[in-house]
Design a protein around this nucleic acid. Structure first.
Length: 770
DNA sequence: GCGGATCAC
DNA sequence: TATGGTGATCCGC
């Protein structure tokens, strides 16, 4: 038995299999477990079973996906990567400008698992009923006091937007912030436990799981504790941390279950924060860009909601484990993954997420009301569509029931729809089907949304290349200045506020690009977005507003082209965009020409670089793109050269001495190209001699004009393509910095909320000698 | 548009 | 602790 197990364990599939069926102690709460032992048990118990076979098969499929990806990667050319880098970095700037740090989002997560553990450790508790309840109960009881629109997710999680509460709370007297210990509870807790110090981080499992459910009588704290001495009271402060401590305190008093919480400027970060000090703890990311980036820097991508074991494995094959690595490889990722995926990766690595929670209305349970609401939504939607001259073929109905379960039902019709009646005909069928599905019970919903997608716009038929339509349709064309100047903010907002009902932030971005139009209408007149996903579409609305606002202000400024850095006389965005395109293309063409001249020699050079030690990267390791990609990584990260293969190639061209942790930014990539063109000659590179010799040797007699010619002549800036008079790398680097950063950084540093020093925007990388 | 894959809970 | 099911969404065909 053990022998056969060992065999399995040594099989090539083992890693993936363990990853798949085994434990991943990356997730919170698993750190203390003997992972290996448990994996062994699982392996033993499941070996030979159908389950096991199936898992092996699935794992093979994942491996094939990875292989496919690596092959794709091998075909990526330097210029493709360069262009991708430019485009992605433009988007980064745009995203940075729209970063919203003004909200305070809290994610509450009940420590159910730990309750179970405690129960295990105290077998006598097994006779008691295990905790049963839901956050929707705590809706009503506690959380709604902090955010009336708080969003339960599943049974044991909830998001709150406490931004408004924090403002109000500043003026609250102590009385309103005083809460009492439930002395009748049997938790045996020490009162000091909650004396406003940071006890909440001490991970005390002070309470036992007991029953709480919707029928439990939960009287108001003040009534319950009337007459109790102040010794049993605790007063919470007015900060976000204090608010969350208060919430957790009250939850525990009510339910005798502990909860963990995260506080952050958006939902994604908040969720990851609640994981940080679990159980019975909390963590906050300050609403500062640098704080967000610091939090993310070494965070394993697996911690990110939405990144599961498959994505983790695929990214690991690219050498990406942490969020900062995810950022560093953004250009490569944009070429290897779908737009939705890589933009999601980019969002993650920048720490961007939804800053708004969805809103729900109170229950609607009669078919009549539901049809009525549906028609109303169709009417609003039809308005929006007609205003934009759009017709769509797919109508989607979204419903959330009273248990916060969300369903979407879609129907595609042959002819496009745009009027209220046309949309309603389709939507009511979808609604009717849902009503029938639960009959004879009534359909009990608290959210409805209608969306129309699959457009062919009038606008699209005409030539209007730089229109908002093309901007939104082609993600890769998004430039930070490519926003429709003709439209007023109001119109722009209206158009894009009808975001996708699908959950993620990028879904909505994409939806917006497709000019989807949707109208979601809770019973309040505002028409807030509602979706189950934590990344609500409202976020997009907000960001859109911000971006548009910035664009407006940009119109008043003299514009400097981020490629050629010449000031542009025109303030017309279309013209500017055209200029950028031309400028970019011109640069790329020149680069391409120069690079391709030496392509064969470079290929040889790269192919004979020292092999990788990274077992996650297979044969493709040898290809030049891979090497190049890794070069970016290593030139940008001081300590990465020791733990990945990069290695030696990187040393050839990178500064051998001190180097700060830096990103592979636009300038990095440009420099790398530059290095390839100019810096291989020994006297310039100043790299590791041994490795250089290899490089030189392999380059051999192919005698690329690049190397030899440049050796004697000049350094050519890969950005502006002008020959540089100097042979001093210091001067040359200075020129590169100026050339690359001039316009962009200047633009950015004018924004107070955009410090230039960070892993994402640092551009002071040096090559060669300083 | 459908089925399989991925992911969260 | 130790396994499975479900729902939503995404992706490729």
């Amino acid at each position: 038995m053990m022998d056969s197990m060992k065999k399995v364990a040594k099989s090539s599939c083992n890693d993936g299999f363990l990853l798949r069926v085994g434990l991943n102690d990356n997730k919170a709460g698993m750190q203390g477990l003997d992972k290996e032992k448990i994996n062994k048990i699982i392996m033993e118990a499941t070996k030979g079973s159908r389950f096991y076979e199936n898992e092996l098969k699935k794992d093979q499929q994942v491996n094939q996906r990875i292989e496919k990806m690596m092959q794709l990667k091998g075909k990526i050319t330097t210029q493709q990567l360069l262009k991708a880098q430019l485009q992605v970095d433009r988007l980064v700037i745009e995203l940075e400008q729209s970063r919203n740090l003004s909200s305070t989002i809290v994610h509450i997560d009940m420590d159910a698992f730990y309750a179970a553990v405690e129960m295990r450790d105290n077998p006598e508790l097994k006779e008691k009923p295990i905790a049963v309840g839901s956050m929707s109960m705590l809706v009503r009881e506690i959380l709604a006091e902090y955010d009336s629109d708080f969003m339960p997710v599943g049974l044991d999680e909830a998001y709150l937007n406490i931004t408004e509460h924090l403002e109000e709370r500043l003026n609250w007297p102590e009385d309103k912030r005083r809460f009492f210990f439930n002395t009748e509870s049997t938790t045996g807790r020490d009162k000091d436990d909650m004396n406003m110090s940071d006890k909440c981080n001490e991970r005390e499992c002070s309470s036992s799981p007991v029953l709480f459910d919707d029928n439990t009588s939960l009287t108001d704290d003040h009534l319950e504790h009337r007459g109790q001495s102040m010794e049993n009271a605790v007063v919470f402060g007015t900060s976000a941390e204090e608010v969350v401590k208060e919430i957790r305190f009250r939850i525990e008093q009510k339910t005798q279950l502990t909860a963990s919480a995260g506080i952050a400027p958006n939902t994604m970060l908040a969720k990851m924060c609640s994981d940080r000090n679990k159980p019975n703890g909390q963590y906050r990311i300050a609403p500062k860009r640098q704080a967000v980036l610091d939090f993310l820097e070494d965070l394993p991508i697996r911690k990110v909601p939405g990144i599961g074991r498959v994505t983790e494995k695929m990214l690991k094959a690219l050498g990406i484990v942490t969020c900062s690595e995810l950022y560093q490889q953004r250009a490569l990722l944009s070429l290897l993954f779908s737009e939705l995926s890589w933009r999601n990766f980019l969002d993650i690595s920048l720490g961007l997420g939804s800053t708004h929670l969805e809103r729900t209305f109170s229950e609607i349970n009669t078919a009549e009301d539901q049809y009525s609401l549906c028609r109303e939504l169709c009417r609003d939607l039809a308005h929006e569509l007609q205003k934009e001259g759009l017709k769509g073929k797919t109508v989607t109905l979204k419903l959330k029931n009273v248990n916060f379960e969300v369903k979407t039902r879609a129907s595609t019709v042959l002819s496009s729809v745009s009027t209220e009646e046309e949309i309603f005909v389709v939507a009511k069928d979808l609604l009717g089907a849902e009503i029938d599905s639960v009959a004879p019970h009534p359909l009990r919903i608290r959210l409805m949304g209608v969306r129309v997608s699959g457009f062919l716009s009038e606008e699209e038929k005409k030539y209007h290349q730089k229109s908002i339509t093309s901007f939104l349709k082609s993600g890769k064309e998004i430039g930070f200045l490519r926003l429709q100047p003709e439209k007023s903010n109001q119109e722009y907002f209206a158009k894009n506020s009808e975001a996708s009902q699908r959950g993620s932030f990028f879904d909505q971005k994409r939806a917006a690009r497709q000019l989807n139009s949707e109208s979601l209408s809770p019973n309040d007149a505002v028409g807030k977005q509602v979706s189950r996903d934590t990344k609500s579409s409202a976020n997009f609305v907000e960001e859109t507003k911000k971006v548009t606002g910035l664009q407006s202000s940009n119109l008043c400024k003299i514009f400097t082209c981020p490629v050629c850095f010449e000031e542009q006389s025109s303030s017309n965005l279309e013209e500017l965009n055209r200029h950028i395109d031309e400028c970019l293309n011109a640069t790329l063409i020149k680069d391409t020409a120069e690079i391709s001249k030496n392509d064969s020699s470079r290929q040889n050079t790269l192919n004979c670089l020292p092999q990788s030690k990274n077992e996650n990267v297979g044969e493709c390791q040898k290809n030049k793109t891979d090497q190049l990609a890794r070069t970016y990584q290593s030139t940008s990260t001081s300590d990465s050269s020791t733990n990945n293969s990069t290695g030696k190639f990187a040393q050839i061209i990178s500064d051998k001495s001190h180097r700060e942790r830096q990103p592979s930014s636009l300038s990095d990539i440009a420099r790398n190209v530059c290095m390839k063109q100019c810096l291989f000659p020994k006297r310039i590179s100043q790299g590791n001699e041994d490795h250089f010799e290899k490089t030189e040797h392999t380059e051999g007699t192919s005698s690329s004009c690049s190397f030899e010619a440049k050796e004697d002549s000049v350094l050519v800036c890969p950005v502006c393509n002008s020959e540089q008079k100097t042979m001093s790398l210091v001067s040359f680097n200075r020129h590169l910095d100026v050339c690359l950063n001039k316009g962009l950084i200047q633009e950015l540093t004018e924004k107070p909320d955009f410090p230039t020093k960070s892993f994402s925007m640092e551009n002071s990388n040096r090559v060669g000698l300083d």
